[in-house]
Design a protein around this nucleic acid. Structure first.
Length: 577
RNA sequence: GCGCCUGUAGCUCAGCUGGAUAGAGCAUCCCCCUUCUAAGGGGAUGGUCGGGGGUUCGAAUCCCUCCAGGCGUACCA
């Protein structure tokens, strides 16, 4: 159920009946202020202008065509020509009953499901996942979950980096350790150290470096021994990723891995096709595509290089092959790329060329979902105290430990097992939520204290709100599933809660249209805040039976909405904290 | 040089295809535990929306220009 959509349709129809153009938008939004009602229509002024009438007079005509008696008990014209809508309490009661009887909180399944390919996480397997992978992984996963909740067919694509020159160095180092009969699997248990040590050999030992370069050539020409060694490394690295995903509660599995190397055999085909279509041009020995769209004022074009001098392929080639695969094999209607904002030019080029070369259907939507950088308190990209890149697994361990310390100090009587579990859930939730709750496109400052705080728009605040509801339900000692007394909306705080509970779908739809989970975060934070106010003002368990049953259902709806919303964000809830 | 992004309260951030008096949290100050978790709630203070032009009934939002910062800009990904 979506009030906004419902009201929008009604008002738009009335506008057309009153003489507006067919496509004149009603622009129904949640009202900016309580005195403006629950929703306001902003489209009257614009429509009136187009047909050359006075906005307030036109608004009056629209009202004549409008019958909202079932939904609203007051619809009024205000200001220069707004229409303010006050939703009926009886309507809210009905909507809440429906919400409570629905196993999906009355969120409508989309009528026309799309196949949405979502490219996210995509770590480089040469190293361990670090803080730079957090945003793509966490935001992408939230959007994936939300798309699936609405009934879309989602294909996850973990485009991991498993190919490239740095693997020569790593394989050479594996060989060296093995020759020294050192325990390679032990060494691989810390990929960060392994990479660093291999790099030192590469930089300082000329013979080692030369061998590393040879191994790259052997690897790319399909040498069996080499591939075997490479595969061994990749498997270990993927295992590391999966441990991190599991710790993070991310829904990516091995089947979602579609590595760069999977496109190797197709890269020459991509280049050939571009050539056949006359899109290719040789420049300084490299095979390039020059597109006017990327020319500056002087007419100089930044090309896409698809094949280097000497024949090697580049990441643009791989991305083109991937686009084509996603279209032809996965049959995508929409492809979302959750990749660093620094690659925007690259993706614009890839998308433009994919269309020119007919690698995608014209109606397929290709969308780069860029995100900013995680910053330290110094305003520079986030680093560990020692100045190195922060390993994601270490960061998550620290989050859990910090949360555990907090829990233990607040609840000294709780068993350590429970303190640990709460610490785990709160710690992980805090890191994820801090990321998800910010506008995706901007950089954000990583701060332990603010993300673990119980004040403000944080995971602990939401989890606490949820656990408070859970506590009431426990204390009621009632079979809440059997509750079916009417939900009556009387007090202001009850009403505010009721309206907010009906707006989950609006938030969820914003998340998938823009790929921005922070809209859902904002919604859940507002819901939790309104619930807290309701909780303070409206006693539940001590109220008379009818009121008690009504309020208990409001609480239950709040609990299920918070739980579902957090689940869409990939965040676990706690019954007690 | 050119292109993209960012600039909103002391700090961290919202602001949904232009919409009414720009909103939260932190910090500061005041109030509320004999009642369901005070890890909470209520209230106050705090803004020339980077500057300047323009478009119109109306601009934080669109256009131009300037300033500041970040990133990108042909064989790394």
């Amino acid at each position: 159920m979506n009030i906004q959509t419902l009201l929008n349709q009604r008002i738009q129809a009335a506008m057309v009946a009153a003489g507006a153009a067919e496509d004149a938008p009603a622009l129904v939004r949640q009202s900016a202020k309580v005195q403006f009602g629950d929703y306001q229509a902003n489209g009257i002024m614009g429509a009136a202008k187009k047909i050359g009438t006075n906005p307030r007079e036109f608004a009056a005509k629209v009202l004549e065509q409008l019958d909202m008696s079932d939904v609203a008990d007051k619809v009024e014209i205000a200001g220069p020509g707004f229409i303010n809508i006050f939703v009926k309490n009886e309507w809210l009661s009905g909507a809440l009953a429906q919400l409570r009887n629905s196993d999906r909180l009355d969120v409508t399944v989309v009528a026309d499901p799309q196949t949405v390919v979502v490219d996210y996480s995509g770590p480089n397997l040469a190293k361990e996942m670090h803080v730079g992978h957090l945003r793509s992984t966490v935001i992408g996963d939230a959007v994936v979950r939300t798309l699936e909740f609405l009934g879309h067919n989602v294909v996850r694509q973990n485009h991991v980096g498993d190919w490239g020159t740095q693997f020569g160095m790593l394989l050479a180092y594996m060989e060296r350790l093995r020759a020294q009969s050192s325990e390679v699997s032990m060494a691989l248990s810390d990929l960060e150290t392994f990479y660093r040590e291999a790099k030192i050999c590469f930089d300082e030992d000329e013979a080692f470096a030369a061998h590393a370069r040879e191994l790259v050539v052997s690897l790319q020409s399909g040498d069996e021994q080499c591939l075997k060694l490479w595969n061994e490394f990749i498997q270990v690295s993927l295992q590391h990723c999966e441990e991190t995903y599991q710790m993070l509660g991310v829904s990516l599995a091995r089947k979602d891995v579609k590595p760069e190397s999977a496109y190797n055999d197709d890269l020459a085909n991509v280049v050939n096709e571009l050539k056949e279509q006359g899109l290719l041009q040789e420049s300084n020995g490299a095979q390039c595509v020059f597109m006017e769209e990327f020319a500056n004022k002087e007419g100089e074009i930044t090309p896409i290089i698809v094949q280097k001098t000497g024949g090697g392929f580049l990441y643009a080639t791989t991305d083109l092959a991937a686009v084509r695969y996603r279209q032809t094999a996965l049959n995508a209607d929409r492809v979302l790329y959750f990749v660093d904002a620094r690659q925007s030019l690259h993706f614009q080029q890839i998308f433009t060329l994919s269309r020119k070369a007919n690698f995608v259907k014209p109606e397929t939507s290709l969308e780069h979902m860029p995100f900013g950088t995680v910053m330290g308190s110094d305003g520079k990209p986030f680093k560990t105290r020692s100045g190195g890149v922060a390993k994601l697994s270490a960061l998550l361990e620290e989050a859990q430990e910090r949360a555990f310390q907090l829990v233990a100090s607040k609840n000294p009587d709780m068993s350590e097992d429970e303190q640990r579990n709460i610490g785990r859930v709160v710690g992980i939730a805090s890191v994820k939520y801090a990321d998800l709750s910010k506008n995706r496109t901007s950089d954000y400052v990583f701060n332990w204290d603010s993300m673990l705080s119980f004040e403000g728009n944080t995971a602990p605040y939401l989890l606490y709100a949820y656990s408070r509801v859970a506590s009431i339900v426990r204390r009621s000692e009632m079979d809440v599933s059997a509750l079916n007394a009417p939900i009556t909306v009387v007090e202001d705080q009850e009403r505010a809660l009721a309206v907010k509970l009906c707006q989950l779908e609006e938030a969820v739809q914003q998340v998938i249209s823009d790929g921005m989970p922070h809209f859902l975060c904002a919604y859940l934070y507002e819901l939790a805040g309104i619930f807290m106010t309701f909780y303070e003002a409206c006693p539940i368990l001590n109220a008379d039976d009818a009121v008690k049953e009504s309020r208990l259902q409001l609480a239950l709806n709040t609990a299920s909405t918070l739980k579902q919303g957090l689940e869409l964000l990939g965040i676990e809830t706690l019954e007690r904290m």
